[in-house]
Simulated scan of single mutants.
Amino acid sequence: MNDKKDASGALLPNHERITPVGRFIRKTSLDELPQLFNVLKGEMSLIGPRPLLPKYLPLYNAEQRKRHKTRPGITGWAQVNGRNAISWNKKFELDVWYVDNVSFLTDIKIVILTIKKVLLRKDINDTENIGMQPFTGNNNG
């Protein structure tokens, strides 16, 4: 992504700043590879709810906080069931379902589905808003 700005000096929207190389890296999920170091260091798991920004912590309700009962992962139940094309509410629902239903077989299913989603480039939000809208605690819909 580049640092292009408008006439007033504000950064342009993400979709106007992403470079062709950056778009390729995101679409092929190559930007996830550095997280393998976090797995090797024991800070993350391969499978589990995706880590979210620390600034979201005070915005979670009691049900949403359950997602922290397991180690965060590179991929998870929410990623194979919608990735970044689902709402925040659905993402939290799927994360909590995973935490409540952790099993080796579920993890194997998530690995297989993740490989399939990445190869087919499925459920990537290709709208002008690259990535998801920020979580505000109110945009659960």
Rank of each mutant, 00 (worst) to 15 (best):
N14P: 09
N14L: 07
N14V: 03
H15C: 12
H15R: 08
E16R: 12
R17W: 14
R17A: 12
R17E: 13
T19P: 06
T19L: 05
P20N: 04
P20F: 00
V21Q: 03
G22W: 09
G22P: 10
G22E: 11
G22S: 09
R23M: 13
R23W: 13
F24W: 14
I25M: 13
I25D: 12
K27D: 15
T28G: 03
S29M: 02
L30Q: 11
L30I: 15
L30H: 08
D31R: 11
E32I: 09
E32D: 08
L33S: 12
L36W: 04
L36M: 04
F37K: 13
F37C: 06
F37H: 07
N38A: 11
L40I: 14
K41N: 04
K41R: 14
K41Q: 10
K41P: 03
K41M: 11
G42N: 11
M44H: 09
S45R: 12
S45T: 13
L46E: 02
L46V: 12
P49T: 08
P49S: 09
P49E: 07
R50I: 08
L53K: 12
L53A: 14
L53C: 10
P54A: 12
P54L: 14
P54H: 13
K55W: 07
P58D: 08
Y60R: 08
N61K: 10
N61S: 07
E63Q: 02
E63H: 05
R65E: 09
R65D: 05
K66S: 04
K66N: 06
K66E: 15
K69Y: 13
K69H: 14
T70R: 07
R71W: 02
R71G: 03
P72H: 12
G73R: 03
G73T: 00
I74P: 00
T75A: 11
T75C: 06
T75N: 06
G76A: 05
W77V: 00
Q79P: 12
Q79H: 11
Q79S: 08
N81R: 05
G82L: 05
R83S: 06
R83Y: 02
N84E: 01
N84I: 07
A85T: 13
A85N: 15
A85S: 15
A85G: 13
I86H: 03
I86P: 07
S87Y: 02
W88P: 11
N89M: 09
N89W: 10
N89C: 09
K90L: 12
K91I: 04
E93R: 15
D95K: 01
V96D: 06
V96R: 10
W97S: 00
Y98H: 13
Y98M: 10
V99K: 00
D100A: 05
D100E: 15
V102I: 14
S103W: 01
F104I: 08
L105G: 08
D107W: 02
I108S: 01
K109W: 10
I112F: 14
I112T: 09
L113F: 12
L113E: 14
I115H: 05
I115G: 14
I115K: 06
I115Q: 07
K116Q: 15
K117P: 02
V118G: 04
L119S: 05
L119V: 08
L120D: 06
L120N: 08
L120P: 02
L120E: 06
R121Y: 02
R121P: 04
K122G: 08
D123K: 02
I124N: 11
I124D: 11
N125E: 01
D126M: 09
D126Q: 08
D126S: 06
T127C: 03
T127S: 15
T127Y: 01
E128M: 04
N129E: 15
